[in-house]
Design a binder for these strands. Sequence first.
DNA 1: ATACTCATGTAAGCTGTTACATGATTCT
DNA 2: AGAATCATGTAACAGCTTACATGAGTAT
Lengths: 191, 191
Amino acid sequence: MSDLSGTARLLLGMIHVKGRRTGYDIKRLVEVSTRFFWAASPGQIYPELKRLESDGLLTRAEEPHGGRARNVYSATGQGEQALHEWLTESSDPVFEMRNEALLKLLFADSLSTEEQIEVVRAMRVQHETILDGIRKATPPYGPDRKFGYIAWMHGLGLHGWVVDWCKQLEQDLAEGRAPQGLQGRDAAQAR
Amino acid sequence: MSDLSGTARLLLGMIHVKGRRTGYDIKRLVEVSTRFFWAASPGQIYPELKRLESDGLLTRAEEPHGGRARNVYSATGQGEQALHEWLTESSDPVFEMRNEALLKLLFADSLSTEEQIEVVRAMRVQHETILDGIRKATPPYGPDRKFGYIAWMHGLGLHGWVVDWCKQLEQDLAEGRAPQGLQGRDAAQAR
DNA sequence: ATACTCATGTAAGCTGTTACATGATTCT
DNA sequence: AGAATCATGTAACAGCTTACATGAGTAT
């Protein structure tokens, strides 16, 4: 299994697909691309870049812009190798979710119908906001970056699905209909 | 905003919908229900139960079973109130995801087609496994626990969607077809 | 007898966020 | 002149997992 930290995977991957970058570049890239499925804060990015340099996976070039310091990192052969090992390793990938709206929903039986609908509405709005964030980040990926586009489409599809699910539930709750209506639809869909 | 910790929300909610429980009960409930969207380990559950007791949100009853210690926790009025406040508060709920397979996919352009397909396959298998876990936990929720059923259906639908998405992508990659085929389908779906 | 489940907890350590600190450059 | 952006970092803290430790009851 790969001994790269989560942040290291992100950094090596970013530098691999985007070319030599500064910590600040990567911070911005994360904000518009991986944020919703692999977050990283500056407090992690900068120290991890240093660590990867001292481990020989990255090299650093000082390229100040005027009097402003600037460290541009590139992958070494060892770094590229570590990246490829991680990408092709067969241990199961991390998948974690923290979904507070869904947790509220799980405990929502004793709420009033209005309060229940409000929980679902908040959940929908949240995923609509994420959807907007993804749409804004229209991937500049050409034919050489097919997978940037694929990952982007995945985000649209996934959060779009959730938004539709919420809308359906909001309707069912508002019309006092038991969400058995969901049963047929989703059971078939989820098979 | 609620000052309850993430684990506190889970514990109060569980005790609210399931009635008085031990830490061990809750640990098992988490394993079969919230695990995939709100995890909690024993190392968090036991200390947090104590904390909630000393904060007056839970009461503890010692009910040893033979020589085996057993602490059964119930919600106090204050605890129920804190739960209701959390459920109805309007600050945006936590939503976080960590999806390593998707991160790999984002960086997969330089892999061979076989390696690319393997990444997607691993992703699919992972969500199929989660789907199995959810299905096994068939919710015993009656008409008084409608939302247990709703949350369960959400899990089936969501992970089912991902599995279908992976299958489609696997096919497209295997057939050398550019996943433009996805474009029409998902763009419409995601609207 | 042995293994599994019930039951409770602690300690070490890793990961990650938030907030802060600093200062230069560029845009309005 | 002032605000926003570029650019790098640190320190304190919160959250969570893993591994360990302990022991009683129950099923095979």
